[in-house]
Design a protein around this nucleic acid. Structure first.
Length: 321
DNA sequence: ATGGTCAAACAGGCGT
DNA sequence: ACGCCTGTTTGACCAT
């Protein structure tokens, strides 16, 4: 089944000629359409038609044509031969008339539909379909507008976000510099102190203690600090408990280096992932992990600051809820 | 001639 | 039953 109806019931539309080349809608409507609801395009019959004739004779023909004998001929012809009527565009005048009505009210009560159809010389169904399509087009445009405005606000937010990220990076670098300075100063102080107070043999062994945590550090060593080897990495941001920069008052300084807030800070991943991802990440409330200090470590391992694994190798469950 | 775009018309699903 | 919405088909029109 073709499923297509011969629209227009044959009569009015059949009179419309093939091509439509019309003056601009404004010209047309200024001349022919008076936005007074009482005004109709009535000719000798109450149903009028727009002559959608194209070609070069456009200027000469009348805009409206009353329906007289023309009504019948084509209908009979089509009735006999079942020739599907060619689809015709509405004339500019018809469209403008419909547009104005659409502006007034974009829905169509049956009475109004019939009235419009009558005034335009169209089938009520055509009017209904036009309104349907018009609503769909309107909606599409509205969606486009909404998209544009949303995109604009997204872009602006993202610009802010990027700005903040840069600022954060800057501050982080500053912090690392200061931390290094503080550590170096502290180390120097300890060295001189030790040299003054202990025997030479002791001093020798002191020298052998490396800067960073090693397996040789006794389990109950009072000082545990992990010096970052790579200043660009924040994953082992753990400070000496004596460091003035170690300000986390909520956590025990001893063996707290595995502090989840350090390990899970999305810093390092932030810059390797998609930006959209970052933005959404930043909107997600921070994860809450159980404090590691709740786990009992009677004799904390010397490498506790990374739980025995480099952060890259921390088990994945660590990141999950 | 061809491909793209727009609008008229249709089909099916859904809410009232 | 009716109208609306959404997606699709189809034809007119235009640019190349």
């Amino acid at each position: 089944m073709d499923g297509r109806k011969l629209y227009g019931g044959g009569s009015n539309m059949a009179v419309l000629l093939r091509k439509e080349t019309l003056p601009s809608p404004s010209e047309l409507l200024e001349s022919f359409w008076i936005p007074d609801s009482s005004t109709t395009f009535h000719g000798s019959k109450s149903v009028v038609n727009f002559e959608g004739v194209g070609g070069d004779d456009t200027k000469d023909r009348p805009f409206f044509q009353t329906l007289h004998e023309e009504e019948n001929g084509d209908e009979d012809f089509e009735g006999c031969f079942h020739r599907p009527e060619k689809k015709r565009r509405l004339t500019a005048g018809q469209v403008q008339f419909l547009e104005r009505n659409f502006e007034v009210e974009n829905k169509l009560e049956p009475e109004r539909k019939n009235q419009l159809a009558k005034e335009l010389g169209l089938q009520p169904r055509q009017v209904a379909i036009w309104f349907q399509n018009r609503r769909a087009r309107f909606k599409t445009k509205q969606l486009e507008k909404d998209y544009d405005s949303l995109k604009a606000s997204y872009d602006s937010l993202k610009a802010d976000y990027d700005c903040i990220l840069k600022e954060k990076e800057k501050l982080k670098t500053e912090l690392l510099l200061l931390t290094d300075k503080a550590l170096i100063g502290e180390k120097e102080g300890e060295k001189t102190k030790a040299l003054e107070n202990i025997s030479p043999s002791h001093a020798e062994s002191q020298k052998a203690i490396p800067n960073r945590v090693s397996e040789h550090v006794p389990p109950n060593a009072p000082i545990l600090f992990c010096k970052q080897e790579d200043a660009s990495s924040a994953k082992s941001d753990v400070f000496d408990s004596d460091s003035p920069l170690y300000t986390d008052g909520n956590h025990s300084s001893l063996l707290e280096p595995a502090d989840s807030s350090q390990i899970f800070e999305p810093d390092q991943s932030e810059f390797s992932q998609d930006e959209e991802d970052n933005l959404s990440k930043s909107l997600i409330p921070p994860l809450c992990f159980p404090k590691l200090e709740d786990c009992s470590y009677p004799d904390p391992p010397a490498n506790a600051c990374n739980l025995g694994l480099p952060a890259e190798e921390q088990p994945f469950w660590f990141w999950s809820y």
